[in-house]
Design a protein around this nucleic acid. Structure first.
Lengths: 145, 145
DNA sequence: CTTGCTCCTGCGACTTGTTGCAATAATCTC
DNA sequence: GAGATTATTGCAACAAGTCGCAGGAGCAAG
């Protein structure tokens, strides 16, 4: 699971910024590495606690914040406003979420190109695509109503 | 401010659904009517308390929920995931929010047309525009970096 | 390996909501 | 107007985060 470990550089990254490598941070990184896709903040807290019952929420959230600054994470907000962390974002992409069934999909930049360019030209607004979650109703759930 | 009062029908609307008209609900409606644009949930709670110190948060949130079901309100989530209520939505529109200065703008359906149609055709996904908040950086804040 | 600078951690308190429950009170019917 | 129904309220507890603070611990320098 740690073959071509994409996390290997984190420690160095942190140190280069004068930040520190602590057992707590390592645990959080391990938890994040052990799963891909999306996680909510409380998911991370819970999984850390499974491994170390002494884990404190504030530490987790602060670490998540740091990791986002360093670029290893990205977060956006779910349907209910809960934080959703997206591990190791390859290229920036938005999310689509069905209000009915709760499934989510990734939206590549190309699909949103029109909107992005439009807002940029008309308003000079640069969209933070990675933070964008589009709610609505998917094909399967559109049947009724 | 209450000339052609747009709230006049609420009581009837509620009753028609077997719901009730209570002093608490009237207060909340008054607070909402006394201001247009966006409000966060806690804003509403606070303003209700200014008028009636006994106001309970749960009552406010539950009423807001009811009012949304009836169609007098719309809510989406702010930058930090906090709930933002949008009073009396005329036509459905999305929001643009600058991460730097915090200002927001409304985005008319036409501007997002491309994205909406694209997602609809490619994936059969119907976007809930009113719930969409697009984060990014506005023209003024794009100067640096 | 000791020292010291600061970053981090953990704690407790607080914010913003949400939820279950028993008591209250709108509204309907007679 | 009295009684029955059942939607609503208010409370208390909980969930998801955030924040300030004092003590502890990385890390680099000597």
């Amino acid at each position: 699971m740690a073959l071509a470990d994409p996390w290997s550089g984190v420690q160095a990254q942190l140190r280069a910024r004068g930040l520190r490598w602590t057992p707590q941070r390592r645990l959080i990184l391990e938890v994040l590495a052990a799963q891909d896709g999306h996680v909510t903040g409380s998911d991370v807290v819970e999984r850390c606690r499974e491994r170390d019952a002494l884990t404190t929420p504030s530490t987790v959230y602060r670490t998540l914040e740091v990791l986002e600054e360093v670029g290893y994470l990205h977060h956006s907000h779910g349907p209910d406003g809960r934080q959703e962390y997206h591990v190791l974002p390859t290229r920036e992409h938005a999310h689509l979420r069905c209000d009915v069934c709760g499934r989510t999909w990734e939206v590549e930049p190309d699909e949103a190109r029109g909107l992005l360019d439009g807002l940029r030209q008309a308003r000079g607004f640069r969209v933070d695509l990675g933070h964008l979650t589009i709610a609505g109703r998917c094909r399967d759930c559109t049947a009724d109503s």
